[in-house]
Amino acid sequence: MEARLLPYFLILPVTLFLCLFFLYPFVLVAQEAFGTENGFSLDNFREVVSYWKFPISMKNTFLLAAAVVPIQLALSLLMATMVTKMQKGRDLVLYIWTIPLGISDLAAGIIWLAIFEQSGFLNSMMVGLGVTDQPVSLLSYQTPWMVFLAIMLAEIWRATAIMLVILVAGIGLIPKEYYEAADVFGASRWKQFTRITLPMLRPSLQTALILRVILAFEVFAVVAALGGTLFPVLMGEIYAYQFDLQNGGAAAALAIIVLIISIVFTLIIMRALRVPKGATI
């Protein structure tokens, strides 16, 4: 009797906690988003979508995700394969490469601000090398592509590590025998990568991509530090609705939109990289 109830007793705190602080708040967001004084309505959504900043922030968020995620995927795969082959200094290199994992998006934004601000290191270097005579304003409304580049670099710098760690652990789970067998059959390094590593890594790739894509839609503090209002993104707009405009309903509606986008992308990734039952290692 006791043994049968024990597991429920043990998962009870988490379940209660998540119901109270995860499921319930989402119900509240939905209520706030769809509700007005006269019951169910889409007014909040209409308001949010028709606001002039909405298409821009939507476009920016997607553009940033589309620019950043593929590069991070390629980079983390490259780093992960480099590390698995490494004999000396593996631990040190891994430590260095995973440092950004512990760094917040805000700090990452500030770090890249040190490089891109007008009196920053990039300008210092360019002037030092004689590329320009005097410091240029890099993060201004006149140079939107430079703002985008700075945000992109900061995002790549900050959030590649999370994918790297998942992929390195995933590669570690692939039995060495497969590679030895491939060697025997004369498969090249590239063939081994595409025929063994990639397919076997599918569950890890799935996880890494889901985590990363969702984080990409949540991008906020990096943008706030580097672009400010020059580069509106969805999360930033939610924050603005909540604080500057004091419009909770609109903030909730926009939150629901971000939520739906996140879920749709999660489903797409899960479908695209699904692992057939029984085909895991």
């Binding site: 708040p25 989402f26 939610i238 996140s262």
Partner: peptide, 13 residues
């Protein structure tokens, strides 16, 4: 919980 942008929780809370 991983498929949701959790910081959004802060709004209703």
């Amino acid at each position: 919980t991983r498929a949701f942008p959790l910081p959004l929780l802060a709004l209703p809370l």
